[in-house]
Design a protein around this nucleic acid. Structure first.
Lengths: 245, 245
DNA sequence: CGTTAACTTGAATTTTGTCAATGCCTGTGG
DNA sequence: CCACAGGCATTGACAAAATTCAAGTTAACG
C-alpha cells in the first residue's frame, strides 16, 4: 500500500496537495462528503488540551497552530493553508490550539470514521503517509531555522517559503498573519521582524504593499540571506555510508 | 488497521518502544531477522544527501541526527537511542547525517522490503504510525523549546527528557554526548550549556558525576526551571470547540 | 602517568529583546 | 465617500541574554 507513496520524490506531496481536488479514492473524496464549516478571523477551531478526536482539512483560508506556555509565551508551530490537513498525529489531547487567521472554511471527520476509512483504502493510507512525511520534513526545517538561523535568515526563509507556497515568482505574496504571528512562528519579537522587513525593503530586496503584501524584487538575494544556499547538498566531502560486515 | 494505534493514549508509543523487543508480528520481528551492524563512536551511518533507501533500528548505543548549514553551523535535530527507528520519513535523499555518539549497534532494512512488509502486516503499520506520531510530537516539543524557551529552560528540559527516557528517578543520568552536541541540539553554545550545568550543580539541583553523568537531586526544581509546569493544561479559560452550522 | 580533547570560567561584544512613543492602515460609521 | 478610531506596525533608546574570544582546568584515554 505505501509502495506508491514511498517512491514519490521528496516534495511530491506538495503537488499531491495541489491536485487533491480531483483524484478518485483518497483524502479528497473522504472529506468531500463532509459539511463545510466556516470560522471568522480569530475564531478558535480546536483548543489545546481538548479531546483530539477529529481530523481537519482546510478548504479555504489560513489557520495558525499555537502552543502557549503557562506564562503566556506563545509559539506558532505552523500555519495551515487550503489543502492542508490538521490533527494527523492523533493523540488523546490536542497538543495545540488552532485559530483562524483569515476567514476559514474547513471540513472535519471523526477519528473513528477516519481510521475505518484508512483501514479500508490503500490510496488513502498512501496519501496519509505522504502528508505525515511532508509534515516531518517541515518540522525538521523549522528546527534548523529556530536552532541556528539569525533573525534575518529566519525572516528571509519565511518569505521564501511563503513565495514557494504561492508558487508565482514575481507576484505579490499575501501574508495574512500579523507581525506578532510571524514573530511567534520564527522565535523572534514583533519589533525584530518589523525592523528586518523594513531593512529588506530599504535595500530593495522586497517591496511592501500595504501591511500584508510583499513583492520579492531580488529573489536570489533573498535566498542568499535566508542561508538556504545549499543546505541540502553542501560541500564535496560526502561519501557513501559504510556498510561494515 | 490503524484502529488499535489510534486509540492509544497520547504517549503510549513510549511504552510500546520499551516492550518492542518482545511482541509477535511488528517491527521487532521484522528487524530481528536483519544482520546487526556495529559502528565506532564518531562513525557516520548515513550522510546528508545520500539516497534514503533504508530504515534503521538502533539496537544499542546512541546516534545523533545532524544537519549542517553551508557555513558550518550545526543543528542536531534529535538523538536516537536503543529501540528508536530512523529514516521513517522516507524521502529520496537523506535530509540529515546520522553519526554514532557511542558505540552503536543497529539493523537496517531496505525501503522496498520495508514497504512490502508494511503492506502485508496491519500490526507493523500500526507500530509505524505510532512511531511517526511520537516523532511528530517530539518535533512539536522541540519547536516550542527552540522558539521560546530560555537557555536555562532548554538545558533543564533536556535533562528532564533524558531522565524520563532512562525512566529511573534518583538514578544517574548518562549523557553520552558532548557539550557541543547538547548545544547544537538546544540551539545554544557549548559555553552557555556548561555555565548552566555548573550553576545547576552549585544550586544543588543536579550533581555532576564526571563529564557524562548527572544525578538529579531536586526533580521538582528542575521541572519548574524547565518551564514545563503545565504547558499541556494551563489556565482555566478553555472551552469546547464551537461547531457552527 | 602523560597527553589531549573536552570542559569550565571570565571578560568583552553582539544580537535581540524590552519599553515607550509615534505613525499608519483598515475597516466602521457618519 | 470621507473622516475617524483603534489596532497594528514602525522606530528609537536602552537593557539583557547569550555569544564570542581567550585563557585555564580537568577528565578520560592510551
Amino acid at each position: 500500500m505505501f509502495a506508491d507513496t514511498l517512491s514519490l520524490p521528496a516534495r511530491a506531496a506538495t503537488t499531491l496537495r495541489a491536485t487533491a481536488a480531483v483524484p478518485p479514492e483518497g483524502l479528497a473524496s473522504l472529506f468531500g462528503r463532509q459539511v463545510v464549516e466556516s470560522f471568522e478571523p480569530g475564531a478558535v477551531v480546536v483548543w489545546q488540551g481538548d479531546a483530539a478526536d477529529q481530523v481537519f482539512e482546510v478548504t479555504e483560508g489560513v489557520l495558525r497552530i499555537v502552543t502557549v506556555l503557562s506564562d503566556g509565551r506563545r509559539v506558532i508551530t505552523g500555519f495551515a493553508h487550503a489543502g492542508d490537513l490538521m490533527g494527523l498525529a492523533l493523540r488523546n489531547r490536542q497538543p495545540y490550539t488552532a485559530e483562524a487567521v483569515t476567514a476559514v472554511k474547513l471540513r472535519r471527520i471523526g477519528r473513528r470514521r477516519f481510521q475505518d476509512e484508512a483501514d479500508r483504502s490503500p490510496e488513502l493510507r498512501a496519501e496519509l503517509f505522504a502528508r505525515m512525511c511532508e509534515e516531518m520534513a517541515a518540522a525538521q526545517d523549522q528546527m534548523v531555522l529556530l536552532g541556528r538561523k539569525t533573525a534575518e535568515e529566519r525572516v528571509c526563509s519565511f518569505l521564501l517559503r511563503m513565495q514557494r507556497r504561492l508558487a508565482r515568482a514575481g507576484a505579490m505574496i499575501e501574508l495574512p498573519m500579523t507581525r506578532v504571528d510571524m514573530a511567534d512562528y520564527l522565535g523572534l519579537t514583533m519589533e525584530t521582524v518589523s525592523r528586518i522587513m523594513t531593512r529588506l525593503a530599504a535595500r530593495g530586496v522586497i517591496e511592501a504593499r500595504g501591511r500584508h503584501g510583499v513583492v520579492v524584487r531580488q529573489p536570489e538575494t533573498l535566498a542568499a540571506l535566508a542561508g538556504e544556499s545549499d543546505e541540502d547538498e553542501a560541500d564535496g566531502c560526502r561519501h557513501r555510508a559504510v556498510w561494515p560486515q
